[in-house]
Nucleic acid binder design. Structure first.
Lengths: 246, 246
DNA sequence: CGTGCGGTTGAGCGATCTCAACACTTGTGG
DNA sequence: CCACAAGTGTTGAGATCGCTCAACCGCACG
C-alpha cells in the first residue's frame, strides 16, 4: 500500500499546498518546514494516535480521511472531527493527544516534528495566521455539528451527512452543478453512527428510508446518487440551500 | 443597571486583563487597543447580535454570561457556546454574525471596532497568539460538548453541566477544595435545555431526580449545593475526576 | 467450507418528547 | 388591596423516536 511512492516529497507539487497550514508560506519558509517534515501512511482502520498518548508531531492530512474520536469508559464513542485532505492534526503546545486519531480510509499524512514546528511557527506569522483561520473554521464546523447532534432527527442527521459529503465532493471535483450529484461514502455505517450520535442500525434504517423515498439512489452499499440536491438539503433541515447555491 | 460605572475604563484595572485576548499584550500594545475599544452593557435576556446581521466589532466578555445560539427555521434551537468572562466574541475577517449572541445574565462587554482591531492584530503577534490559543481551547470545549450531545443520557448531561459550572466557580473563587461545593445556576431551565439538547421538562425532571438521589441539594430553584463532588463527576460519566483534582 | 465483516431488517422496549395542568413569584392596574 | 397576567418551574400521562437484541444476507478470504 505504499502510496508514499506516489506522493511527491516536494512541497511545490503537494496536492494540499494551497489549502494546508503551509498555504501562505513563501519559498524560504517552506524550506524550513521541509527540514522537519516526513510522510507517514496508514491503512484504513489503523489508529494513528491513541487518546492520552504522547504526541511528538503535528501533521496535515495529504490524502485519505482520518477521524477524531472520543470514547467513554463504557465504550460509547463519538466522532468529534472528520479530517479531510489539508486538515491539520495536533495542537502546538500540547504534549498529550486529546483524542483518538484513526485512519478511516487509507491515509497519507505530512508530519512535522512538534518542537521544531513550534519554533518555526513562532518565527513565521504566515503559519500561525493560517492555523488560526483553519482553527476558526473547525470551530464553526464543530458548532454546526452541535446543532445536528442536539436537535436534528435521525433522518435529518443522515441527510445532513450526505449533503456535506456531496458538497465536499462537488467542491473538489469543481464540476458545475449539472445533473445528478454522485459520490461514494467514505464511511462505514458504524463510523456514520459514531459521527451522528446514532446506532448503526438506525443509520441503516434511515438510509433505506431515504432510498425508499427516492431522495437518494444506491448502487451497492456505498455508491450514492442524489437526483435532486434541493430535496436532500431540505431533508437535512438546514437553512434553505445551506449556502451551496450562493 | 449601569454596571458600566463600576467597570474601570482602564485596562490596567481590568478584571479579565490576564485571561482575555489581550492577556499577553505589553503596555504599548494595550494603548493601541484602548484607542479602539468601548464598553457596552446588556440586561439579561437582551440580544447582543442576531445571526446573519452585520457585525462591525469583536469583543471580550468582561462580566456576566453570554450564549451563542443556533436556530433552525422551525424554531428548534441549540446553544453552541457559553461565553464567560474573558471569552472572545466575533471572528476577525468575518462580516456577518454566524450565531445569535444573547446576554444570559446582565453583561458587560469590552468591544473593539473590527477593522482597526484586525489591523492591530496583524501587527501584534501577541494578540494573534493568544487568540489562537483561546480558539483551540474553545474547539476542545466544543468537541467535549459533542460527546455530551451525541452520547450522554439526560441525567449525565445535567450532571456534566452542573460539574462544569461548579468547576468554573471553583477556579474563579480560587478557594481550596474544602467541604461542599456551592453555586448559583446562571441559566434558566430552558437555557439549560438549549445547551444540553433536551427539553426543559426533561431538565426539570432530571434535576429533581439528582436532588431526590442526594447528588445535589437545592435551596430555591437556582442555589445548588454539591455534598460530594466525586459523586457528581461520576454521574457525569466523565473519565475519572475529569482533571479536576489534577 | 467456514469465518468474519459490513450491512439489513424485525420486534419489543424504554428514554425522552409532547401536551397539559398546576404552583409560585413578580409586577401591573383597577 | 386584590385580581390578573406573565414568567419560571414542576409534575403527570401518553406517544414516539431511536435503542437493544437478534436473526439473517452477501461477500471476501483463508
Amino acid at each position: 500500500m505504499q502510496d508514499l511512492k506516489l506522493v511527491s516529497q516536494d512541497c511545490a507539487d503537494c496536492p494540499i499546498r494551497h489549502r494546508a497550514v503551509c498555504a501562505r508560506c513563501e519559498t524560504d519558509e517552506l524550506e524550513r518546514l521541509e527540514e522537519v517534515k516526513y510522510y507517514r501512511s496508514f491503512e484504513a482502520g489503523q489508529t494513528v494516535v491513541w487518546q492520552g498518548d504522547k504526541m511528538d508531531f503535528v501533521a496535515s492530512v495529504v490524502t485519505g480521511i482520518a477521524s477524531l474520536t472520543q470514547t467513554m469508559e463504557d465504550g460509547r464513542t463519538q466522532m468529534v472531527g472528520l479530517l479531510l485532505p489539508s486538515d491539520f492534526v495536533g495542537r502546538p503546545g500540547r504534549e498529550i493527544a486529546a483524542y483518538d486519531v484513526v485512519a478511516t480510509t487509507d491515509l497519507v499524512m505530512c508530519c512535522f516534528r512538534k518542537k521544531p514546528f513550534e519554533q518555526i511557527m513562532m518565527q513565521t506569522p504566515h503559519i500561525a495566521e493560517r492555523l488560526l483561520q483553519m482553527t476558526l473554521d473547525e470551530l464553526d464546523a464543530a458548532r454546526e455539528w452541535m446543532l445536528l447532534l442536539g436537535r436534528k432527527t435521525a433522518r435529518e442527521k443522515i441527510a445532513s451527512l450526505l449533503a456535506i459529503i456531496a458538497q465536499r465532493n462537488a467542491s473538489l471535483t469543481a464540476h458545475p452543478k449539472v445533473g445528478d450529484v454522485i459520490f461514494d461514502l467514505p464511511l462505514t455505517r458504524e463510523a456514520m453512527a459514531d459521527y451522528l450520535g446514532l446506532t448503526l442500525e438506525t443509520v441503516s434504517r434511515q438510509i433505506s428510508a431515504l432510498k425508499r423515498d427516492g431522495v437518494i439512489v444506491l448502487q451497492g452499499k456505498r455508491h450514492v446518487t442524489v437526483p435532486d440536491m434541493r430535496i436532500l438539503l431540505d431533508e437535512a433541515g438546514d437553512d434553505s440551500d445551506g449556502g451551496m447555491l450562493a
